[in-house]
Each structure stands twice: as structure tokens, then as C-alpha cells.
Amino acid sequence: MTAYIIRRLFSTLVVMAVVAFVVFSLLYLTPGDPAAVIAGDIATSEDIQRIHQRLGLDDPFVVRFGRWVGALAHGDLGTSIFTNLPVTQLIGQRVEPTLSLTLCTLVVAIAVAVPLGVVAAAKAGTWFDRAVMAFSVLGFSVPVFVLAYILILTFSVQLDWLPVQGYRSFHEGFWPWLRHLILPSIALGTVYVALIARMTRASMLDVLAQDYVRTAQAKGLAPDRVLLGHALKNAAVPIMTIIGIGVALLISGAIVTETVFALPGIGRLTVDAILRRDYPIIQGVTLLFSAIYVLVNLAVDLSYAFFDPRIRY
């Protein structure tokens, strides 16, 4: 197991290196010039050219890439072209809201979706099962931003229960923190509830048709024990896989959610940086995302061994 983890961690570095190179190359080829954005609408071509030179954007690809990798090797992700703040500081400011949103969404999604999927499988063919499936289709179909606006209109503008936008740090208190995350988590979580509930139901139906489940039922075990103790544990591997994929999807979903609810998270940082061609931020955030994605996949792979002892690494 240890050797496997080390091997996988090493492969993470390789993946990140490839991602870094590809992203840097893509940004190099993408139209857009941060110098033009900095100079503003009233600037002349000469102004832009001088700022361009100051930023070192005239240097060849190899020189720029080498400079960036060199700094990266020292743990320096660079400095924002616009704010002159270190990229690590900017990411640091944004980690908490995104982490909070992702965690809350995952908790909401798993807490709602797994029981829904399990019960739908246990009651396959009934109205409850059909309702869960219908909800699942709806959850997939409604875009996050549409649901977000409906939630804002209902719970913030009409009922005045929850805030429209913004984020409060956990340090400012648990309740202010939670208040600002309820609507975003529901908006972002709905699609995951649909996804995980559907996968849990399918996986459970598959397991419930196995012989050992019939044996357990024949032995007279209580239905909930058969369902949760025997069937769910064996159905967990595909569910964990879909949750792992869900984390990657959460990153893209968080961009929309953070924009609509004005949450100062990494998703918005990324979009803003792309719009302004703030290359160091885009590169830094992409590296971070790739690392998270690879590590989440590693964690999911390792969890298989926990749920199914037959799996060995």
C-alpha cells in the first residue's frame, strides 16, 4: 500500500508538470494581452507596447516558461500582473470560501443522495422510486444559475431569510458562515444529489440482485441490516467513484455558483484572471486544481480497499 501511495504521489507530480506545460502553452497562444487591459481604454499602442515590455511579455516562450518553472521550483507561483500581489496570497484569500462551499455541497449531496438512492432501490418500481428518478432528471436538467436565482428570489428577496450574496469567514462565527452557504450549497448540490442518488440506486439494485443478499434475507436478517450492512457497503465502490468525479465537477460548478452568489472563491479568481489575461494567476490556479483532482482520485482509489477488502494495492 505504501509503495502504491508513493508511486501515485510521484505520478501526481508528473501529471502536474504536463498540465503546467500545456496550460502555459495554451496561454501563450491565446489572444489577449494583459498590457492592453492595464493601460485602459484611452491608452495608445505605444503605451501598451511599453507596458508589455516592462512585464517581460516580449520574451520568447522558452525564456518565459523557464522563468516561471524556476520560480515554481522555489515555491513561488509568481505575482499578479494587475494587483502586484503574490499569487499564493491571492489563492490563500480564496481557499476558505471555495473549500467551505465544496464541503457543504458534498455534505448536502451525500447526506441527501445516498439515503434517497438506497430507499429508491429498496422500493424499486414504487411511486417513491419514480419520484426520486424524476427529481434526478430535474436536478440534471436545471442549470445551477437558474436554480440559484430562484433560491435568491424566494429565500432572500421574498422571504428575507437568508443573505443574497457574500461570504463570512468561519472566524466570524459558525452561524454567519453557515447562513451565507446554505443557498449556494443547495444550488450547487442539487445536481450532485441527482447524480449520486441515481448512481446509488443503480448500484444498489445491482447488489440487491446478488445471491448473498437473498441468502441474508433467507437467514431472516432485518431488512435495514441487509440494506445498509450488506448491500450498501458492496455498492459503495461505484458510488465513491462518482463522488470522486463529482469533486472535479464541483470545481467547474463552483465558478458559476461563486459568481451568482458573489462568493470570493477560487472559481471567481480563475474567471477574473482569464478575462484579464492575468497569466500567473491562471497558471497557479490550474496547477492547484490539477493537484486537487489527482489527489482526490488517489483518495477515492484508496477508499476502495476500505469498502472492498478484496482490493489490494
Partner: peptide, 17 residues
């Protein structure tokens, strides 16, 4: 407070935030 989405900005002003 920079709110990039204009619908959210309108809702925030309406709600007094």
C-alpha cells in the same frame, strides 16, 4: 463590494445588503 452578476447586485440592493 464587487458583485459581477447584475441580477445578484439588484437583489442585494433590494434586500438592503
Amino acid at each position: 463590494i464587487y458583485i459581477p452578476d447584475s441580477a445578484t447586485a439588484a437583489a442585494a440592493l433590494n434586500a438592503g445588503e
